[in-house]
Simulated scan of single mutants.
Amino acid sequence: MSTQDVSVLAVNNLGLNTTQAKNWQTFLRDSGYNPGTIDGQLGTNSWKAAQRAFNAWGYRAGTVDGIAGSNTIKALQRFLNDAGYGLDVDGIAGAQTKAAFRDFNS
């Protein structure tokens, strides 16, 4: 596997387009959590920033490792629910979670 393949796999925008992902990165930055370059690619630095934010805000993302795993998705779902989305907190980035995340960042 080449380095390029690894970097592509490390990006997980959860259905966001580049503009929506930039909005999320900007939201994190403006909230005091540095996502790195605002480039519309939710990679390790963006997810570490989100995990730090979620943990600080009480959404329990767990380990800050930059991976959008089950605990991070649960924290995202809790965060989105507090914004009024009414998601099941199951740790799965399914269609409803992705739609809510897109809407939040539109």
Rank of each mutant, 00 (worst) to 15 (best):
A56M: 11
K74C: 15
D82L: 06
L80H: 07
G62D: 09
Y59Q: 11
W57P: 00
N55P: 01
F54E: 03
G86C: 05
Y85T: 10
D82P: 01
F79M: 13
Q77R: 07
L76H: 04
D82E: 15
N55G: 05
A83T: 06
L80I: 11
Y59I: 08
A61P: 10
Q77V: 12
Y59E: 11
N71M: 05
A75T: 11
A61L: 08
N71L: 15
L76Q: 11
Y59T: 02
G58T: 05
L80A: 12
A61F: 06
L76W: 01
F79E: 01
G66W: 13
G58F: 00
D65I: 10
R60M: 07
D65Y: 08
N71D: 13
Q77I: 10
A83R: 02
A83F: 04
S70K: 15
L80E: 08
A56S: 08
F79T: 02
F79R: 13
V64T: 12
I67L: 14
L87I: 03
D65E: 13
Q77A: 14
N81R: 10
R78H: 06
K74G: 05
G69K: 00
G66L: 13
Y59K: 05
A83D: 15
R78A: 07
I73P: 03
Y85C: 12
L80N: 06
Y85G: 12
T63W: 00
G69T: 04
F54L: 05
A68F: 07
R78N: 04
G69A: 03
I67W: 10
R60K: 15
K74D: 04
F54P: 03
R60T: 13
R78G: 04
I73M: 03
S70W: 13
W57F: 08
R60V: 04
Y85H: 15
A56F: 00
F54K: 08
G69S: 09
I73V: 09
A68W: 04
Q77S: 12
A68K: 12
L87T: 02
G66D: 13
T63P: 03
S70M: 13
A56H: 01
G84R: 05
N81K: 10
A75D: 04
G69M: 12
G62L: 09
A56Q: 05
T63G: 00
R60L: 09
D82N: 12
Y85W: 14
G62N: 08
W57N: 03
G69D: 05
G86T: 05
Q77E: 14
V64S: 03
T63C: 06
